[in-house]
Design a binder for these strands. Structure first.
Lengths: 297, 297
DNA sequence: TTGATCATTTCATTTTTTCTGAAAGAAACT
DNA sequence: AGTTTCTTTCAGAAAAAATGAAATGATCAA
């Protein structure tokens, strides 16, 4: 049976034009090289060299030399691809991320990761948490960054950060003078309701939300309303990162349960090395972060 | 070091989804397969299967499976190409042939050879003997079929056939009634000179040629002259094969030295297997032939 | 849950393959 | 012819791969 090693030996001898030097560069004794060559010739049934001195190739030798070179190059590329993939130097990671994270923290992390792993392709989509869950189930993505996910037999979960709710207002709003905003102070302001803050489980807030004249879904629109002075709203700090200096964020005097940002993946599957590497990179970098806005519990 | 055999074993296990069946179709004991697989995983540093039961692949496994399939297909194609080339089932033979042979005997031989060796490409040129020699020297052809070549240290030569000179005339020429033409009879006819017959070393002929009023180089033109009744000429029988029923060929009463048809190749090179195969086929078929027109000496 | 069954791994041993080093045989150089 | 350099041959050493038996682990059904 013809093996790649035979081809490698033959190519080296043909290139060196000499068995001794070939043996040297292959790290073998000349006799071993001679025998391997004999074996290959036996398989082909024809000599590869014109004479015993391995300098001139026969027509068969020339053909085998060319084909072997191609084959070995192909083989070596394949092996490199395999080891690169296995060591996360190569691969593809499909990630879906909630917009608040995608627009604020993610870019710098991606920049750093791709600089270190230029051959790993990151495929980033942004969508809402429910869609991300669905896409993960369908194996259309490898990782998801969502808010308040639930761990399950299907879902592996790591907490990346905690995002605290606070009051978002225009910079000139009277509330901006306080360091922290109490429920009483908030009650006096015009509150704009939004889906994120409605999930907060806090009796004091429910009344205020019930009194709200305005309810806005889209975050960008919501911030535009605030900027226009139509009222204040309640949002996780991270979401406000998208805003400009016209917008001011203030903590609540009695903080409510933070909104968790979680990294999720399919529990039943071993992720690809590149996916693991990216996940580990993310969790490590997020664990290091001590920014006020994302202080861990 | 990762070897093709490891990839082959892995692919078989992944395909079978089961180590025992894979071992069976590989003709190995399960333990051998298990160890080879372990070795591959050790090289990659990551598992290839989700669980110990070899049914579900990891992301790495899927990648390695795809790459290995491609690699093995490429490798097998290469080996097939090498063995096909070595056994003359594949290859290219560049041949230059003198027109007389190319237009008469060669076609049927080529037909038979290509039917038997469909993957051997025959590259046939026709040119005069001197050009063929030159092309062979320059390694632009592998084989030449020429007339009256000389053997040398550079040229390997095999005689393919002997071509006898005879008188070529229009069918209604009085000479056509004789079975063989004597010098005396020939002297009375109008002889058209041509380069082929001028090389004949025969005193009786020299006088006749000296008296010739016409001398024509191109064979086709020469035969047209004969057909037009301008005279008779002297040609090897093979050359006349191109002619039609209007032309009659008659042997000489006292035959002159035949024109040899030789197969030549470069003596210093081992020809490619396909070239050898074609050369052997040619000589064998020509040796078999007992046609009157090419009777061997 | 507990066996029962089947698949996989481990390990000591055997078999096969490959490598080495010495010596002989060939070609090229002087 | 003599010398040098290269290649092959061969027997033994070393390495690699395969085997078979036993152990371990997983799955399924009661």
């Amino acid at each position: 049976m013809i093996k790649t090693e035979m081809l490698r030996v033959f190519v080296e001898v043909a290139r060196a034009g000499n068995l001794v030097r070939a043996a040297e560069s292959l790290g073998r004794a000349p006799s071993a090289v001679s025998m391997t060559l004999k074996q290959l010739e036996a398989h082909l049934g024809q000599p590869l060299f014109e004479s015993e001195r391995k300098s001139r190739l026969t027509a068969l030798g020339t053909y085998v030399f060319e084909m072997s070179n191609r084959e070995l190059a192909h083989f070596d590329r394949t092996i490199t691809a395999l080891t690169d993939f296995a060591s996360a130097r190569r691969g593809e990671v499909r990630i879906a991320v909630v917009p608040s994270f995608a627009m604020t923290i993610l870019p710098e992390l991606v920049l750093e990761f791709t600089a270190a792993s230029p051959n790993v392709r990151l495929d980033i989509h942004d969508m809402d948490s429910a869609s991300i869950q669905r896409e993960l189930d369908r194996e259309r993505i490898d990782l998801g960054i969502v808010s308040d996910a639930r761990q399950s037999a299907e879902v592996r979960l790591v907490e990346l950060a905690e995002d605290h709710f606070g009051v978002v207002m225009r910079a000139d709003n009277p509330l901006a003078t306080c360091k922290k905003v109490s429920w009483q102070a908030l009650a006096k302001a015009d509150l704009i309701a939004n889906p994120l803050c409605e999930r907060i489980d806090e009796p004091e807030l429910h009344g205020a939300l019930a009194r709200a004249h305005l309810r806005v879904h889209n975050t960008t629109t919501l911030l535009t309303m605030v900027r226009a002075g139509l009222g204040v709203t309640l949002l996780p700090e991270l979401v406000c990162q998208q805003a400009d200096s016209q917008i001011t964020f203030r903590e609540l005097a009695s903080p409510v349960a933070p909104r968790r940002i979680d990294l999720i993946s399919r529990a039943r599957d071993t992720p690809s090395p590149a996916t693991s590497a990216f996940a580990e990179f993310l969790t490590a970098r997020m664990a290091e972060r001590t920014d006020i806005l994302l202080a861990k519990a």
